[in-house]
């Protein structure tokens, strides 16, 4: 196996062989590496010491959440010609939700994923922190272990502290003028993930407004319950509990698409009456003809 580089930690003296670059973020790069025993890890490198140290701290703080990759060490080193700092993390075999934009997963499965994601971020929120950088690329589906993993902990801040990393499409402050520094903005981001998955498209706040998205939702083919959920999520109406409750209700009642003929009892009554009326006409006509 040909490696593109070798990294030796300055303090822990561990050696890692770099296979390839698997990602790039605003703070640095992520590589797939192996150690001397051939075990696979992800190495996240950055020149930004403050950000990376904070991320390592967050990964350790929330290590009890199974969705989060394990972090093993923080060290300094030299890679691809630069002096950097790096974190060694668990390597996750999975594909990000971004790839799912091209597949068609069922509405039920999509909503279930949303529920799982909400519960993960709720655990973080309940500890007094907010995960600000929610986006499709940061949520992985680990197909081997059949689980959802959340990566990139550079954007986690204490509630009440500044937003450090975010993505415009999923951040409420790029769509609305009011400040939201609590769980309502978390739900906005999760709801936007749901919208991206259902409509197979990521909306850009520079070229669209919330009204554009609301219009698209209203004129689409989904069940009214889903539409209401999406719109209220956009307006910043839900806290975590209310959102979870509404999503669960939709899954339980199997309210996934607009039924063509009979979506509720009013329709049943309507069609029933028409049916009875027609039957009455035919009956009366028959009586006349066969008198």
């Amino acid at each position: 196996m040909k490696y593109i580089d070798v990294v030796k930690g300055k303090w822990n003296k561990n050696i890692y062989y770099v296979e390839n670059c698997i990602g790039q973020g605003s703070v640095g790069y992520v590589y797939k590496v192996v150690n001397k025993r051939g075990e696979k890890f992800a190495l996240k490198s950055s020149e930004d010491l403050i950000s990376l140290t904070k991320e390592y701290k967050m990964l350790n703080k929330f290590s009890y959440i199974s969705a989060i990759p394990k972090a093993y060490e923080l060290d300094d080193g030299y890679i691809q010609g630069k002096n950097i700092h790096f974190i060694i993390m668990e390597y996750i075999e999975g594909i990000s939700l971004k790839k799912y934009l091209l597949n068609n997963i069922s509405i039920k499965k999509t909503l279930s994923i949303i529920l799982i994601i909400t519960e993960i971020f709720q655990q973080i929120y309940d500890s007094g922190y907010i995960y600000w950088d929610i986006k499709l690329e940061n949520i992985l589906v680990d197909r081997i272990n059949m689980s959802i993993r959340v990566i990139d902990f550079g954007g986690v801040s204490k509630i009440g502290q500044s937003i450090k990393e975010y993505t415009p499409t999923y951040n409420i402050h790029c769509w609305r003028d009011k400040p939201y520094y609590d769980d309502k903005s978390l739900i906005f981001s999760i709801n936007m993930i749901l919208i991206s998955l259902l409509y197979n498209k990521e909306f850009n706040p520079l070229t669209n407004s919330i009204q554009d998205i609301i219009y698209k939702i209203k004129t689409s083919d989904f069940n009214d319950g889903i539409k209401k959920l999406l719109i209220n999520g956009l307006i910043g109406d839900y806290n975590i509990e209310k959102y979870k409750y509404t999503v669960k209700k939709i899954i339980q009642k199997n309210m996934f698409s607009k039924s063509k003929y009979c979506s509720n009892w009013i329709d049943a009554l309507y069609w029933g009456s028409i049916g009875m009326f027609i039957f009455f006409i035919i009956f009366t006509v028959k009586m006349y003809i066969f008198k």
Partner: peptide, 18 residues
Amino acid sequence: NIAKKSILSLLNILNSRE
């Protein structure tokens, strides 16, 4: 127009600081 929108959301984001 994009520059204007960017400046507005910058203030929103910066206001999250203590």
